[in-house]
Simulated scan of single mutants.
Amino acid sequence: MKLKNKLALTGAATMVALFLGLNANAARMDMVDVSNNNGYMSTAEYVSMRNEFGVKAVTVKISEGGTYKDPYAASNIANVQAAGMYINGYHFARYATKAQAIAEADFAGQTAKAAGLPVGAVLATDVEAEEQNNQSKATNDRDNVAFMQEIQKFGYRADIYTSGSWANNKMTIKGKTGWIAAYPYVASGKNWYSTNHAWQWSSTAKFRISYGGFDVSQLNSNYYTAGQKSKVKPTNKSAVKVNNQKANKNTYRQYASAKWVKEAKTYTLKTAVKLRTGASTSSNTIAILPAGTAVKTDQAIIKGGYRWVRQPRFNGYGYLATGPASNTLEYVKSGATHTYYTVKSGDSWWTIAQRNGLNMTALASQNGKSIYTTIYPDQRLVVR
């Protein structure tokens, strides 16, 4: 999942010293969540996550709003199960009324069934969008309850995923419930959100044979592993410990070293976005820019869980989030148009690159992948 409100960093040098010196028990990589942003994930990749990093469960994106179905949901569910791991799902919420929440739950439940999500799995509602940001806490609580009650009619267990800054602010998250995102990890001698089911502590974790960054969580209860049976356990316990510690250190360093970079671009908003006085969700709102607005920027930064851009204005600057910290553009689209190629049976990175006059590595890179990433029939790739 993307779009989380993370915690601000202070005293970076001191924090790093504390982290490296005191964090003998690194946050665990118990659960990974994946979506279409991660592309096709093979069984081998999930086996590697399990054996080398100690991942127990995978939560896959099922749907969003009332119409979007994640195209990778079915293959992710099948491949996670083939790897012998616990499988769950999540729905990215767009609802702003009780009726919309019930309708989205029906859509999510039906989509999950069709994709093969087993009865007894968790199907969480991911509540972090502008639609909920514009509602009162009471309204969000009402809508979340309606979604969760409806989703249970499909045989799934319910939960809420949201950011640490939204929990008990934008909505109520009681103890012994909830999956909370708050990072980067800072050594404190305590497990964050230990009274909740899960704590997501990074969105940039790396796995040995998988491309890109991943959301990882520590499980504080058996809620996301109950109701199903895991067939296998990690085979390399020493590697699990080392890899978990490395992931903690890398996550902290990335967020501690974030810097502004030049980015002179024009974006068109796909949805309404708040223009703020600073690159933080706690900064004051200058205006709410409607969908279709063209925004010219001069700089960008990954900060506080979002990808922020700076807009020069007549009296200073405005700041808006373009999407999650994974550097994807969820709220905006660039003015450039692309030409796509649909993968056919027997295709490879090399054959597609040759057919379109491209370098194989460049082709993979412009699609957010590497030449070692598996591609499969009917997948769409950008070739221009």
Rank of each mutant, 00 (worst) to 15 (best):
V332N: 09
V332T: 15
V332G: 12
K333I: 10
K333G: 14
S334T: 15
S334K: 14
G335H: 12
A336D: 14
A336W: 02
T337Q: 15
T337W: 08
T337A: 14
H338R: 14
H338W: 12
H338L: 12
H338K: 13
H338I: 09
T339E: 15
Y340L: 12
Y340K: 08
T342N: 08
T342Q: 14
T342H: 06
V343W: 10
V343M: 11
V343G: 12
V343I: 13
S345W: 03
S345T: 15
S348E: 09
S348A: 03
W349G: 02
W349Q: 09
W349E: 03
W350N: 13
T351I: 11
T351G: 10
T351Y: 05
T351P: 06
T351H: 11
T351L: 11
I352Y: 05
A353Y: 05
A353C: 04
Q354W: 03
R355P: 00
N356G: 07
N356L: 08
N356I: 07
N356D: 08
N356T: 10
G357A: 07
G357F: 04
G357V: 09
G357E: 06
L358H: 01
L358N: 02
L358K: 11
N359P: 03
M360I: 08
M360H: 00
T361E: 11
L363W: 03
L363A: 03
A364G: 03
S365I: 01
S365Y: 10
S365A: 14
S365T: 13
Q366E: 07
Q366R: 14
Q366L: 01
Q366N: 08
N367E: 05
N367F: 04
K369W: 06
K369G: 00
K369Q: 14
K369A: 13
K369V: 00
S370M: 06
S370D: 11
S370A: 12
I371E: 07
I371C: 03
I371R: 10
I371L: 04
Y372W: 12
T373A: 11
T373C: 03
T373E: 05
T373G: 00
T373N: 12
